[in-house]
Every structure is written in C-alpha cells, then in structure tokens.
Design a protein around this nucleic acid. Structure first.
Length: 516
RNA sequence: GUGCUUGUAGCUCAGUUGGAUAGAGCAACGGACUUCUAAUCCGUAGGUCGCAGGUUCGACUCCUGCCAGGCACACCA
C-alpha cells in the first residue's frame, strides 16, 4: 500500500539524516496537488516537544532531508507540512507492478459473519430492505476483496406471533372472512392465498428472487423455527440460569440485561409460557459464536430496530464473554430509512400492493445498476432521498453512467490499438498522466480504509473520482495519434485504470460495460 | 420525557486518529464536437459548516447547552 511505502521512505530518509523521532505521524494525500502528492503532519506533532513552530521544524527537517541522495521521493516544507512528491520512476514502477500483480492485503483471517436484510417473511420487500441488502452485499464483496473471511446470512423470522397472524389472515381470505385484528392487509396477501405453495414458503422464494435480481445472495438462510425445534433456545435458558442472570417475576422469566449494559431487564419467557423473539434471537447469536465459531459479528438492521441493540449485546456479553462489548466483535450497522421521490415529489403508494412502493417495483423501474449504485453511494447513517426519475436519467445527474462510460471508453480505445504495451517509460509525464497514475495507486489504500471502516460507499466515491481523472486524461492525451513509444506507455495507463475501475465495479456489484 | 441519529453551497452529498485557502457532482452562467464515443472536457459564480459557549498553537471534527428533522422506547417481531 502506497501510504505505507511512503511512510517507509520517510522513516528511511529521517534515519539517514539522523533525525529520529519517537512520534508516529500519518501520511495523507496532499490537499492541493500544487503542494505535492502526499503530506505528513510530523512537524505539528513535534512542535510541543521541540518547543518550536511547525513551520520551522518542517523547514529544518526538509533541509536535512535534501542533503541525502534521494530515494524515490522528495520533500518540501510548506505551512508546517512536509509535502512528499513521488519521483516519476517510482510512480511508474508502482503502476506497472499493480498492472502485473494481484493485490495483496494483510487482512486478519478471523471468521466474520455478516447478517443482513433478515426481513419478515410476511410481506414484500421495500426500498429500505433494498438499501440494507445492497449495503450488505457490497460490504461482503469489499471485505472479501481485501482477503477477509466472510459468510453472509439471512435470518428468517418464520415463527412466533407474526407468523400465526399471517396464516390466520391467509385462512380468512381463503374462507372469505374478514381479515383478523392485527392481520395483514394488501393485495399481495390475496395472491399468496391463491398460491399453490405454502404461502410463507412462497413469500420467501419471492424475496430470494427479488434480491437475486440485484445480485444479493446469502451463504445461508437461517430459520428461526429451527432454533425452537433443535432445542437451542432452551439451552440459553439453562446457561443464563447457571450464570445467575435470570429470575422469575410476575409469572414471566427475565434476563438481567441491565447487569450487562442494557437500560432495563428483558423478558425471556412470557407469562403465557411462550418464548419471546428476543430469547430465540439470543440463541441465534449464541449459535453463531459458540456452535459455529464466528468471533466477529456484523449485523445490518433498519433504523427502526436500533433500540434493540443493547439487549442483544447484553446477551452476547453474558453468554459469550466480555469481548462482545467491543464493536469489533459485535457491530450493528444501522441503516437509515429511504424516502422515495419521483421528480422531487414523495411517492408512497404502490400500485400493486396499495401500500408502500416495493423494492421489486423500483428494480423494474430503474434496473439493477442504478438501484445498487444509488443505495450504496451514501453513508448508511444518512437519511436518503431516492428519486426514481433521476436514477433513470442518462445524464450527468446520474453518476452510474459517468463511471460506466469511462470504462466503456477505455475498452473502446484498447480495442482499436494494435501496438503492444510498453513498460519502459520513454517520456516526461504530463499532469494528466501523472494524476491518472496517482489515482490508480491510491486504490489500495482507499479500498483497505473502506474495508476497515465498513464503508463501501467510499468505493463508490473513489470510482467517480477515478472516472473523472480518466475523462480529463482522455481529453488531453490521445492514444491513437501518439508516437509509438508514448502509445505503448499510455496503453499501460489505460489497462491499469481499466483494471482498477473493474475492481470497483466488482465490489459495488455494478456491471462493467465494454460499450455504451 | 429518555435514548440513538442527522443538520456543510439553490439541490444531493464528501470531509480520513483535530491541521494548509471547508471540497465534489448536479443545477446556473461562459466556452470546447471535420477529433480514440460530447453519456465528455475546460472555466466562472456560489458557504455565518443549525445556534451559543468551552477545550488549544489550531475545531466542520472533541466537550456542554439549545434549536430543527427522522427513528425507537412491549410479556410485538
């Protein structure tokens, strides 16, 4: 990774210049290309210790560094920052290496379980589910891309009150009786009541199909009912009793979750003798950790469930140990809801179900790529507005086409040239060429940081930025009309950019068109 | 009422453990197609970072209070 490489160069230069400091500084991308390619705030961090201004310190360090024979990078002090510029040869060498070798990351191999969507099987998926689905699948792609071990799972809530009501509703429709109190309304229920299959099965199949349309799939669909049948829920009761973490009150059995960070205690067995959803969910999480050995759990839940997080965490701490207090071991990503708009106006009603517009309708309307892109693009913490008309536009308002067009352009050019690629650099790089190489070289850091922060949206932003850099390069640097040696070098640049952008598409789960 | 979350340009959003003049895109305005795809590029303009204090060499970033929107506060799932 380039930042690490630069850090090494800096450390090496400091050592040669006999400027050893204990303070660890960071390497960041220079805020302005005029300053350099990268920068470090080392001088700011040293200011207190050396009792001098960052400006003076940076200048002094750079003066020392300028005395040593240079090692691929050069240093320049401006405003207290030490700016770092990569030599052309170093940049080129790195680019060729990236083109010819697969990326390697030193990722932890601890097993990760990513659970997402887990929508109730009693109704259609809506756009919010779509957001969590796309986020989860892109996150899985991202973590796997950097070499982490991830399994994905959909927890099917196929048991309990809701399911009972669901079947009662189906029965009522079949018997042409009114829908029971608290039952399910909507056109889709009538369709399910007429289906040949079991209505619940039928609805789950439908969910699988729709998620499949946007390339969202799971390693395992885990049934809640199976936890009842296997007696795994009962095991939890025994364990909590052993740990003296449960008690009986007012006819119900309670978990002392308030001892483990929850705001109050929670019911495990209701006074009517039924298990709560919460108890079974604890069994599910216990199963993930203890039976199946996952030490890192990531769940993606809708914002309407965020209040549920502390009690599950409490359960994990009680049952599996205090490490689950740490977000690294148990992380719940809260996806905010989505407002659907059409030409700036809110759309709520669905033609088919008479309810909220469904995910299926959105996908039909705007297609897989746009659905995925618009739902991944934004930080999941933000409440987003999703404009259906905007997502369909083939204009600059739609970044999906912008990045895909860049890719198609590269493919088109490469299909036209016959000259071989040349890795021996024969020219002085112009600013556009340099910017393109730098953008490619940044990818490793970007994707790694995105993985660490569980933020696939960063990859989407990076892709747009790389596409922009490429489009500028395209305007300025013709390939076909260039002299043969320059052409050979530019082919390397194009192939590398094509490869990098291709990685982005793979992670985002968006198609990479060779022509548009 | 309590908790979580959001508030940055007209709009949609970035802003990396606190660092350089707060950045992009769209929309607006002005330019560039006999050209490897103009689904593109180049330029101009646009800001009291919700408000008020505090912490320090330095705050969009951290702390406190307030304002506004969203969500949640079940022996439902």
């Amino acid at each position: 990774m380039i930042k690490r490489d630069i850090q090494k160069k800096l450390d090496e230069a400091l050592r040669i210049a006999k400027q050893n400091y204990s303070i660890q500084s960071g390497i960041e991308i220079a805020s302005n290309p005029a300053f350099g390619d990268y920068a470090t705030n080392l001088a700011f961090l040293l200011a207190k210790e050396l009792k001098s201004s960052p400006k003076n310190i940076a200048e002094k360090i750079c003066e020392e560094l300028s005395k040593i024979p240079q090692i691929d990078v050069s240093f320049k002090a401006i405003n207290g920052f030490i700016n770092i510029s990569l030599s052309q040869d170093f940049l080129w060498e790195k680019a060729c290496h990236l083109l010819n070798n697969p990326l390697r990351f030193n990722a932890s191999q601890e097993p990760i379980l990513l659970e997402y969507v887990s929508a109730n099987p009693t109704g259609p998926l809506h756009i919010g589910h779509g957001r969590w689905a796309v986020l989860g699948s892109a996150l899985a792609n991202l973590l796997r891309f950097v070499g982490m071990k991830v399994n994905t799972e959909f927890y099917i809530n196929d048991s309990g009150n809701q399911i009972r009501l669901f079947y009662e509703t189906i029965q009522a429709i079949q018997d042409k009786r009114p829908i029971p109190e608290g039952g399910y309304h909507g056109q889709y229920m009538t369709e399910l009541a007429q289906a040949a299959l079991d209505p619940l099965e039928s609805n789950i199949l439908q969910q699988k199909k729709i998620l499949g349309q946007i390339d969202v799939s799971f390693d395992l669909w885990y049934s809640e009912k199976s936890l009842h049948e296997s007696g795994k829920a009962q095991v939890i009761l025994d364990l909590l009793k052993e740990k003296n973490a449960s008690y009986t009150e007012e006819g119900a059995l309670w978990f002392k979750s308030s001892d483990y960070g929850d705001e109050k205690d929670r019911v495990l067995i209701k006074a009517d003798g039924h298990m709560t959803y919460f108890l079974v969910d604890l069994a599910y999480h216990y199963d993930k950790v203890v039976s199946r050995g996952y030490t890192r759990l990531i769940n993606i839940w809708g914002a309407d469930h965020h209040g549920y997080v502390p009690r599950v965490r409490a359960g994990l701490i009680a049952l599996c140990g205090v490490i689950y207090k740490e977000p690294h071991h148990f992380k719940v990503m809260i996806g905010q809801l989505v407002n659907l708009l059409r030409n700036g106006e809110p759309v709520r009603m669905s033609k088919r179900t008479g309810d909220m517009i469904t995910l299926e309708e959105v996908i039909e309307d705007i297609g897989k790529d746009a659905t995925r892109y618009f739902l991944i693009e934004k930080n999941p913490d933000s409440h987003i507005e999703f404009d259906l008309e905007l997502a369909k536009k083939n204009t600059m308002e739609n970044p999906v086409y912008y990045i895909q067009y860049a890719y198609a352009r590269m493919c088109s050019i490469l299909s036209k040239v016959t000259a071989p690629a040349s890795e021996s650099l024969s020219m002085e790089l112009c600013p556009e060429e340099r910017a393109l190489l730098l953008a490619n070289i940044r990818f490793e850091d970007e994707v790694w940081e995105a993985a660490e922060l569980l933020s696939p949206y960063r990859v989407a932003h990076y892709a747009v930025s790389l596409a922009r850099t490429f489009h500028s390069f395209y305007e300025k640097c013709s390939l076909i009309q260039a002299p043969p040696d320059v052409q050979g070098n530019r082919i390397v640049m194009l192939k590398l950019t094509q490869k990098t952008l291709g990685h982005c598409f793979d992670i985002l789960g968006i198609s990479a068109p060779t022509k548009m």
